[in-house]
């Protein structure tokens, strides 16, 4: 390896509002960094090639695949995981609606579903079912058959728009 390339990279970022500094292996993806180095096990490592969506986290305001971004690339980034979004209450209404509608059984996909759903609702308005379905097309759920998830998200979109926060 030439000196210009490193196999360990120093990064400084914020995760769930807190500053974090770390030295990460070059090939370590963001979800492994969050789970193994920071103990934030909410985002799940599953297919590890971008298909399932269980690793979805928020980076610089956007939902991304945690398995398809290297931790080294998160230098300077603002990362939010389901732990932080739960603590701040940012997705509390979505979580309550998921419970009320039985929008989860095993719960494995739920952190990714919530981040993806929050991403859609951040746009504002009340998306129709086809739009919600389309937005979640990259998030697998093997339990619910999706209908309840779409119900829950639509319920929250309606409630937020009635409160005038959407």
């Amino acid at each position: 390896m030439t000196a210009a390339f490193s196999d360990r990279i120093d990064i400084a970022l914020t995760v769930n509002g807190e500053s974090v500094e770390a030295r990460v292996p070059a090939g370590r993806h963001l979800v492994d960094f969050l789970r193994l180095d920071l103990g934030l096990t909410g985002a799940h490592t599953s297919c590890e090639h971008g298909v399932c969506g269980a690793c979805t986290v928020r980076v610089d305001g956007q939902a991304v695949r945690g398995c398809l971004m290297l931790a080294a690339q998160a230098d300077g980034a603002e990362v939010w995981t389901i732990e932080g979004l739960s603590d701040t209450g940012a997705v509390a209404d979505l979580q309550a609606a998921f419970v009320a509608r039985n929008a989860l059984q095993c719960g494995f996909c739920t952190p990714g579903m919530l981040v993806a759903a929050a991403d859609l609702l951040a746009v504002g308005g009340v998306p129709d079912r086809a739009t919600i379905r389309e937005h979640l097309s990259g998030n697998y759920c093997r339990c619910t058959g999706y209908e309840a998830i779409i119900d829950a998200i639509q319920t929250v979109a309606l409630a937020r728009s009635e409160k005038g926060v959407a």
Binding site: M1, T2, A4, F5, S6, D7, I9, P25, A26, G27, R28, H29, D32, E48, L70, A72, D75
Partner: peptide, 25 residues
Amino acid sequence: MKASVGGYARATDLRHALDLLAASD
């Protein structure tokens, strides 16, 4: 499975990226 990467470098501009590419054998 996990990636097995030889190394990582962040290019600051196009010239830097081309130099890194040239230096990578």
